Computed example of a mutant assay.
Amino acid sequence: MTETPTATKEKPAHRSGLAAATREFVLIVVGALIVSSILRAFVGQMFIIPSESMQNTLLVGDRVVVEKLTDVERGDVVVFEDPGGWLGQEESGQKRGSVGRFFEVVGLLPDSSHGHLIKRLIGMPGDKVACCDAKGRLMVNGKPLDETSYLYPGDAPSAMDFQVTVPAGHVFVMGDHRSESGDSRVHLSDTGPNGGSPGDAAFVPLDKVTGRAILVVWPANRFDKLEIPDTFKDVPAAAAPPPDKPSISLTPPPK
C-alpha cells in the first residue's frame, strides 16, 4: 500500500511580504534616528528662543539652527550652557516631558533651551572690553563698535561702566536687548559656581559653548541668516596673551 505524501503548508505570500516590509521600515526608522542623533551631537541642532534678551535679532519663539563644527568668533550669536547661576525662570525654557525630551535628543524636535542661553559673543580670550567711550560706544581692544545694526532700538550699549580683560578659555557675551539681558556685565561681581574670586561667573567657559547660531528657520516669515556684523571685522587682535584670571574694573575707561 502506497502512502500519499503529506502536503507542506506554505506561508501566504502576502504575510511574508508584510513582515519583510515591516522589518525594512523599522530598520529605516532606527537608522534615521541614529543618524539624527549623531548630527545633533556633532554637527548641529535647533533651539527655541525662550526670552527677550536678543530682541530684535531674535524673538521669543524663534527656531534657530546652531552649528557645532566651526570655532566661534567675535560677533557670533552663540548658544551656551548656563555657566552657573545665570538663568532665571524667564530664560530657562520650558522643560519637556520624557517623550518630548527623547525627540529632542534624537533631533526630531528643537531643543527647548532648558539650561541654555543665547547671547552675542563680544570678547574672546585676552580681549579688553570696556564701556563706554566719550560717544557712549562699547569698545573691544580699544576699537569702538558701531552696534546700530543689531542693538535693540532705544537701548544704550550698557547702562553700567566697566573695563574687563577676558581670561584664557573664556568669552564675554552680551544680549542685543541690553536692558533686558542678564549677560556677562550683570555677573561682574559674582563668584563662580564653585566659589572663587568676584567676577569669575561673568565669563563663559569655551567648553560650555554649544555652537553658533547661523539661521532663523521658523516662523517662515522670519527666515534669515545670522551673520557677524561688519563692525567686528575692524576689531584688532588682543595685545597680549589671555591672563589666567580676569581683570575687572567697574569704572569707565579713560575718555
Rank of each mutant, 00 (worst) to 15 (best):
M1Y: 06
T4N: 12
P5Y: 04
P5C: 08
T6P: 11
T6Q: 13
T6M: 08
A7C: 00
T8K: 14
P12Q: 15
A13Y: 04
A13D: 13
A13Q: 13
R15S: 12
R15H: 13
S16I: 14
G17E: 11
A19Y: 13
T22K: 07
R23G: 12
E24A: 13
V26K: 07
L27E: 13
A32R: 04
V35T: 10
S36L: 12
S37P: 02
L39A: 11
A41H: 11
V43T: 08
G44K: 07
M46C: 06
I49Y: 05
S51K: 03
E52F: 04
M54W: 03
Q55E: 14
L58E: 03
G61T: 12
D62G: 03
R63L: 13
V65D: 02
V65Q: 09
E67S: 14
E67G: 03
K68C: 08
L69T: 14
T70M: 11
D76T: 10
V77I: 15
V78M: 03
V78I: 15
F80E: 06
E81F: 02
P83M: 08
G85E: 09
W86N: 05
E91N: 10
E91S: 15
Q94K: 14
G97M: 08
S98M: 12
V99G: 04
G100H: 02
R101E: 13
F103K: 11
E104N: 12
V105Y: 08
L109D: 11
P110F: 01
D111V: 07
D111Q: 08
S112E: 11
H114I: 01
H114P: 00
G115L: 09
I118P: 00
L121K: 09
I122C: 06
G123R: 02
V129E: 03
A130G: 01
D133T: 10
M139G: 01
P144Q: 10
D146A: 10
T148L: 07
L151V: 11
P153A: 14
A156S: 13
A159K: 05
D161Q: 06
D161W: 07
T165H: 04
V166E: 01
V166Y: 03
P167T: 08
P167E: 07
A168P: 02
G169Y: 09
H170P: 06
V171E: 01
V171D: 01
G175Q: 03
E180I: 00
S181A: 14
S181R: 00
G182M: 13
D183M: 00
S184A: 09
V186C: 00
H187E: 06
G192R: 06
G192S: 06
P193K: 07
N194V: 08
G196R: 08
G196Y: 07
G199P: 02
A201N: 07
A201P: 05
A201T: 11
V204F: 04
K208L: 15
V209R: 02
T210M: 12
L215I: 13
V217W: 03
W218G: 06
P219I: 12
P219W: 12
R222L: 06
F223S: 05
D224W: 00
L226V: 08
D230A: 15
K233G: 10
D234C: 00
D234E: 14
A237G: 15
A239T: 14
P242Q: 09
D244A: 15
K245I: 02
P246S: 11
L250Q: 11
T251A: 12
P254K: 13
